[in-house]
Nucleic acid binder design. Structure first.
Length: 479
RNA sequence: UCCCCGGUAGCUCAAUGGCAGAGCGGGUGGCUGUUAACCACUAGGUUGGCGGUUCGAGUCCGUCCCGGGGAGCCA
C-alpha cells in the first residue's frame, strides 16, 4: 500500500530560535546557555587560518550578534565559504562573554546552517553606507540596512502608540472608506477609480459617460477620512481613523507622497481649545514613546542622521508648546527683521518660509497657530464671532513645517450653508453632511496628522520617501 | 508644474578642452580575537541618451531622460 501524501511531505519543520534583541535584553540570563539564532549576515571578518566572525542581524534590533565560527578542533571552512554578506543563516551555540570590544556577549557556533546565500559579486548592499537615493532603487532590500530597519521599527512602535493613545482615552477606531464619490473639500488632486478601459473610452456624446462604469458615477481614492469620521463622531462621541490617503498632486518635494497614512481623530462636544489640548497631548505622547520605547533607534538617528534629534524629542515631550493666533503670527513676522521672499500681510497664507521662521527661529519649538482668516480655509471650519476668522489650528514643528491641521467644525446649519455658498460648494453634493446639522447637530472638532511627516520629525530622516516602506510619488509606483 | 544643482567602475566620488582615476565593494593569496578588520596582487568604463562646436569633448552648446534641493500645493 502506497503511503498517502501529506501536507508536511518535503517540508522541514522550522527550528524555533531566539530573537537577537531578546538575547541582548537579558544578557546575564543567557550567558553560558545555548541559543539558536536566525537572520541575515551583515558583515564577516574571517581569517582563513584562524577565527572567523559573522555579524548577524535578524531585524529585531540595530545591534548585530557576533557569531564566532571556529574553535579548537572544529572546521567550518566548507560552509563558511558559502556564507557571504547578505546570506540567511542559522547559528546555534554557546552564549559567552566576548573578549573583544564592541559587544559584551557573542555566540560560539557549534552549528551553522545556510538557508539562502547571496552572491557577493551581485548583492547590492555593501557593509558601507549607501545613499538614500540608491537604496530607493532597491526597496526590496533596503529594510536590511540599519537606517531603514530602524525606521520600520519606529513606524511599528508609533502605529501601536497611536492606537494606545486613543484607546486609553475612550476613542473608537473607525474605518472610513478608501473609495469615495465626493471630491472631498478640495484637499489636493484626486486619483480616479474606474473600471473603464482608457484604450476604449465611452463613445463621445454619450448621455451618461459613466453608465458602464463600476459605480455609475465618478469615484475617487480618498483624500481624507474626515467627513465620514464626523458621521461617527456624531454617534459614538470620540473616534479616530488611521489609514491610507491619496493625493494626485504633481508634487516633488521631500515631504510629499501620493500615498500616505493619516491619523484623523474627530470628537463630539469638543471645541477648538479641547482639540488643541488633545493634539498637544498626542504629540507629547508620541515623542515620549520614542524616547522610552525606541531609545536605541533615537540614539542611532542622533548619531548618524540628525545631531539635534534627541534634544528635539525631549523638547517636544517635556516643554510646553507655544500657542499663538494667526494675527499674532503675522505680528511676529512683520516685526521681524527677516527679509522674506513673500510679503507678510493679514489675510494671506503663511508661506513655508514664514512657518519656518516662526517655529525654528522666533520660537524654536513646536507651535500651534489658531484662528486663520476665513477666506483661507475650507467650508467646514467653524466661523468665529468676528466673522473674519475660523476656529482652525495648525501645528508646526521645526524642520518639517505643518504636521497637524485641524479645526472646530461648523455645526450651525445656516452658517454651514452660507459657507458652502461662499466657497461655491453645492449642498446637494453633500446632502448627508448637511443633514448631520439638521438632525442632532453638536459642536465637534478634529484634526489630521500626516504619519510619514511624524516619522520624519521623530527620526530626523530628511526625505519622506524613507519614512514609508514603498513610496509612491509622481512617476514612481515600483515594488 | 516652476527655479537651481547634479548624472564618470557595483557603491561614494575625483579628473585647466589634451593618456579614464581613487577609496570602498568583488576575485586571488596572506594573517589564530576581528569590530567599516588588516597586508599584497588583480579584474572592472559606450563618462545618462541623441545631436552639435572643435585638430581633439567626461569637460563647451542644444535637447530629451533620470536623480537631488527649493518653491507652489498640502499632511
Amino acid at each position: 500500500m502506497e503511503p498517502k501524501p501529506t501536507l508536511c511531505e518535503g517540508i522541514i519543520p522550522m527550528e524555533k530560535g531566539i530573537r537577537i534583541a531578546e538575547l541582548f535584553r537579558d544578557e546575564k540570563k543567557w550567558l553560558g546557555k545555548t541559543a539558536l539564532v536566525q537572520g541575515w549576515v551583515k558583515t564577516m571578518r574571517d581569517s582563513k587560518a584562524g577565527v572567523g566572525f559573522i555579524e548577524l542581524n535578524d531585524g529585531s534590533t540595530l545591534k548585530g550578534l557576533q557569531i564566532v565560527t571556529q574553535l579548537e578542533g572544529r572546521d567550518y571552512s566548507a560552509i563558511l565559504k558559502q556564507i557571504t554578506t547578505g546570506s540567511a543563516i542559522l547559528a546555534e551555540g554557546l552564549v559567552s562573554a566576548s573578549p573583544g570590544k564592541g559587544q559584551s556577549i557573542e555566540l560560539q557556533a557549534d552549528r551553522l546552517h545556510l538557508y539562502g546565500g547571496a552572491d557577493p559579486a551581485t548583492y547590492p548592499l555593501q557593509k558601507k553606507r549607501h545613499s538614500f537615493e540608491y537604496l530607493r532603487q532597491i526597496a526590496h532590500l533596503r529594510p536590511r540596512t540599519n537606517t531603514l530597519g530602524a525606521i520600520a521599527r519606529v513606524r511599528n512602535q508609533l502605529s501601536f502608540a497611536i492606537h494606545q493613545f486613543f484607546q486609553d482615552r475612550g476613542f473608537y477606531y473607525v474605518h472610513t472608506p478608501v473609495i469615495t464619490a465626493s471630491d472631498c473639500e478640495g484637499a489636493g488632486e484626486t486619483f480616479r477609480v474606474t473600471t473603464l478601459d482608457p484604450a476604449r473610452p465611452p463613445a463621445a456624446g454619450l448621455e451618461d459617460p459613466y453608465r458602464d462604469d463600476f459605480f455609475q458615477k465618478p469615484a475617487y481614492l480618498t483624500v481624507s477620512g474626515q467627513l465620514q469620521a464626523e458621521i461617527y463622531a456624531l454617534a459614538l462621541g470620540s473616534v479616530y481613523t488611521f489609514g491610507p490617503t491619496f493625493r494626485a498632486e504633481d508634487s516633488n518635494t521631500s515631504r510629499h507622497l501620493a500615498e500616505f497614512w493619516m491619523v484623523e481623530p474627530e470628537m463630539a462636544f469638543h471645541d477648538l481649545q479641547d482639540n488643541l489640548e488633545v493634539a498637544l497631548a498626542f504629540i507629547k505622547y508620541l515623542t515620549e514613546t520614542m524616547l522610552t520605547k525606541c531609545s536605541e533607534e533615537v540614539d542611532f538617528f542622533t548619531r548618524f542622521i540628525e545631531p539635534e534629534l534627541t534634544k528635539r524629542l525631549e523638547k517636544a515631550a517635556k516643554s510646553a508648546f507655544e500657542i499663538i493666533t494667526y494675527t499674532e503670527a503675522v505680528d511676529i513676522l512683520t516685526r521681524s527683521k527677516e527679509s522674506f521672499a513673500y510679503p507678510v500681510e493679514w489675510g494671506s497664507d503663511l508661506q513655508a518660509e514664514h512657518e519656518r521662521y516662526i517655529t525654528e527661529k522666533a520660537l524654536g519649538r513646536p507651535v500651534g497657530i489658531t484662528n486663520f482668516p476665513r477666506a483661507l480655509k475650507p467650508f467646514y471650519m467653524r466661523v468665529n464671532e468676528d466673522q473674519k476668522t475660523v476656529a482652525a489650528m495648525d501645528i508646526l514643528v521645526p524642520g518639517i513645517g505643518e504636521i497637524i491641521g485641524g479645526s472646530q467644525r461648523e455645526e450651525r446649519l445656516d452658517v454651514l450653508l452660507e459657507q458652502m455658498r461662499l466657497k461655491a460648494i453645492a449642498p446637494e453634493d453633500y446632502r448627508w453632511y448637511v443633514e448631520l446639522r439638521e438632525f442632532g447637530s453638536a459642536p465637534h472638532s478634529g484634526f489630521g496628522l500626516g504619519f510619514e511627516r511624524l516619522i520624519q520629525f521623530v527620526t530626523g530622516i530628511p526625505n519622506i520617501r524613507e519614512a514609508i516602506p514603498f513610496p509612491r510619488t509622481p512617476g514612481h509606483a515600483e515594488f
